[in-house]
Each structure stands twice: as structure tokens, then as C-alpha cells.
Computed example of a mutant assay.
Amino acid sequence: MAVSVLGWLFVALLVAGATGGGLLWFLGWPRLPRAGAFDVGELLDLLKIALSVVAGFGGVVLLAVGYRKQRVAEDEHALSVQRAEREVVQKFNERFGSAAEQLANESPAVRLAGVYAMAGLADDWADKRQVCVDVLCGYLRIRQERDGETEVREAILRMVRDHTRASARISWSALDFDFTGVTLENADFARLEFRGEVLFDGAEFVGGVASFAGTVFGRLLSFHGARFAAAETNFAGITLARGKAEFVGAEFTGDKLDVADALLESSSMAFFRCRFGAPVVDFSQLDFSFGRLVFDRCDFADLELDLSSKHGYDPGPLPVLAENCRFERCRLDLSHVARQVRLTGCSLDTVTLVDRDDEPVQLPWQQVELRGGTLLPSHHTEVVSPASS
């Protein structure tokens, strides 16, 4: 306090000295009369001036004291806020530890309570919401054979669905989700919204249906090494807003793969070294907005592959690419889109090509091998490019 007061007094003296010196300079440095030359009234005026100066310095002292008190009050308030925040974080940490212990309990009822406790903590603790969700996803990745395990895992998936719907009161859509290596029976991720990264690497989908129909993905959707063994895998109407969907080494062994009406906005859906064994593979009516569908080193066998569109795709860069792929005993429907589907280095063995467009078109194919009596539509008899064989 003393240092603060002395500092302000020093500043006041400097200001007063500078002001007085400036005034004397302006007046031409006049010579003051002797003390005996002042009458009583002038002496009183000088006394008033001296008292005003003293009062001014007193005001400076009061100002310094008040400013210091204000700083002390602000520091005390900041400390109280920090203490309150530490107490809140401590309570959150206690809740986190309690929920984690519940998830590790042998009793299925306690583990189920732990799921709801961890989800509730994620709603309340915005700063560590991702950590809480990571714990729930990590629980799914741990393979356990215990009583009530199905109910506990389904509760976690239900929490994910409830918090990634458009109507969710507290949304988890901006978070990342890691379902690596998880086995999902009758997986239901339909009509949800994921704006972060979603990983299903090494996951296995079994049961009657694995549905992602109508779901919006904003960044990376990854299915490296995933196995789709559900009777129907449904990606119909999904939206890839940004980023990309990657299927690397994935297998489709169910009865149907439905990706019809998907919207690719400035993004790509890429299949690399995938094996398509589902009898019906539907990529029809795709909507491309600067997006692209890519097949690279994929195997298609004993299936119907539908890439058709009612009105074709907008002119521009080719939206559908297939490179070094093998088609065996397939029916390939390119109705109204034959111009926009490029095959490079592919092998077609006993393939029937369907194109309901009656006008002859030039297929953008390069180094394509046609074997086993592959059938092209009649108006495509002379359309194989010079680089094709």
C-alpha cells in the first residue's frame, strides 16, 4: 500500500511541477514580490491556494488507496472464482471416477448405472465431454462375456443415438467416435449426425440389418478392415458433407448393399481392395456435388451392380471411377450414366452391361479386358476406346 501511495504522489508531484513550470514559462518567468508586499487579502488567497494543493495531494492519496483496494477486491474475486472452478472440477473428477468404477463392476445392474452416470457427466462437463464419450466407446471395444453385457452395450449405443439426433437437447455430434473392432448386431445408426471422425475399423456388422440410412457425416468415416455380414447393409440417403468415407479391405457378404440416393458434397466415397459378395449392390441415383465415387482394386462377383441414374449426372469431371477392379459374373447397370463411369485397367469376365439410353455413347474406358462372353448393349458395339482390348 505504501509503495502504491508513494508512487501516485510522485506522479502527482511530476504533474504539478510540469504544470507550474509551464505556466511560469508562459508568463515569461515573472519575479514574485517580497512577502511584505502582500496585503491580508492576498495572503489569504495564497493560503487558500496552498490548502488546495495539500487537498489535491490528499485526493491523490485517497485515489491511490481506493485503486489499491479495488485491485485487492478484484484479486480476491479471481481467487474465489478459481477456487470455485477447482471445486467444480474436483466434483466432476469424483463423478468420473465413480462412473468408471461402476463400468468395471461385475454386476450388470451397476455397469448399466455406470453407463448412465458417464453419459450424464458428459452432458454436464463440456470441457471433458470427449473423454467421457471415449470411455463409453472404449467399453464397447473391450470384448467381454459377462451376464447382462448385451444390455449394457446396447445402452451405450442408445446414448450415442440419443445424443446425435437433430432433436438432442445436448448434442454429441461434434465429437469423435471410435468403434474400432466392435461387433455390432442389428446396428442402428440411421438418421443421425456426426460432424467429427467416426471409426469402424475392424468392426463386424451382423444380424438382420446394419443401417446408416439418412445419416450425415461431416469429416472422416472409416471402415478399414470392416466386415459387413448383416443381411442388409443400408447406407441409402446418407450425406457426406465434407471429408471422405474410406472402405479399405472391407467385405460385403450379406444379401444386399444399399447406397442409393447418397449425397456426396465436396467429398469422396472410396473403396480400396474391397470384396463385394452381396447379390445386390445398389449405388443408383447418387447425387454428386463436386464429390466422387471410387473403386480401386476391388472384386465384384456374382452380383447385380446398379450405378444407374434417372437423368444422368451433371457434366464435368467423371464422378465414378473404377481402377484395376475385377468383375465376374456380374450384371452392371449403367443406365443414363455410361458417359460418367470410367473403367481403367479393369477385367470384365462374363459381365452383362445394361444401358437403357438408346443413343450410342463413347465409353470412357482404358485398358479394359473383356472376357467370358461379356455382353455390351447393341448400340455399344463399336464404343470400346482405342486403348481398350
Rank of each mutant, 00 (worst) to 15 (best):
V383L: 09
E246M: 10
L51R: 09
A18D: 05
A270F: 02
A16D: 07
L192N: 02
L121M: 05
F189D: 04
V61A: 15
V65K: 12
K256M: 13
D287E: 14
D258E: 12
Q102C: 04
V131G: 00
E154W: 01
G202E: 06
T344W: 02
A35E: 04
V11W: 09
G237M: 07
V259S: 06
Q366K: 09
S284G: 12
S80M: 08
G207Y: 06
E101G: 14
I156V: 14
A387M: 06
D299K: 06
V110D: 03
N234H: 08
P33L: 05
E149Q: 13
A231Q: 14
V135R: 08
G148W: 05
F92M: 14
V354R: 09
L307Q: 08
W8T: 01
L175A: 08
L334W: 04
G21M: 06
E251A: 06
E246N: 10
A84N: 01
H311G: 11
V11H: 04
V88L: 14
T239S: 11
L264C: 04
E304R: 11
S4E: 13
P386F: 10
A174Y: 09
E85K: 12
A126M: 03
L46A: 13
N105H: 15
R86H: 11
M159H: 02
D39F: 03
Q285L: 13
T180L: 07
C330T: 14
H380C: 13
E154K: 08
D296A: 07
T164W: 10
G208Q: 13
E359F: 04
A84R: 14
T344E: 14
P30A: 12
S308I: 07
P377G: 10
A226I: 05
R331V: 15
S268C: 03
D178W: 00
L199K: 07
D349E: 12
P30S: 11
L9G: 01
R219C: 01
W172M: 12
L263Q: 12
L263C: 03
D261S: 10
G316Q: 04
Q362N: 11
F200T: 06
A301P: 00
G372W: 01
V383T: 12
E74F: 05
N324V: 01
L332P: 01
S171E: 03
I238H: 06
L318D: 06
D358L: 12
G181F: 07
A322D: 04
D127P: 00
R329P: 01
L293K: 10
A260E: 13
E145M: 08
D127R: 12
V281K: 01
S211A: 13
Q90S: 15
C274P: 07
D261E: 15
E251R: 14
H163Q: 09
D127K: 13
E74H: 09
G58D: 03
W25G: 14
F200A: 04
G114C: 09
L157A: 08
C137Q: 01
G7L: 10
E85C: 01
Q362C: 09
A301S: 14
R95E: 15
A117C: 08
A64Y: 04
L27H: 10
P364Y: 09
V81W: 03
D176N: 15
A245K: 08
A37D: 15
L23M: 11
A250E: 05
V72C: 07
D255P: 00
K244Q: 13
Q367T: 08
C330A: 15
K310T: 05
V182S: 03
G22T: 07
G208I: 02
R83E: 15
D123Y: 02
L140H: 11
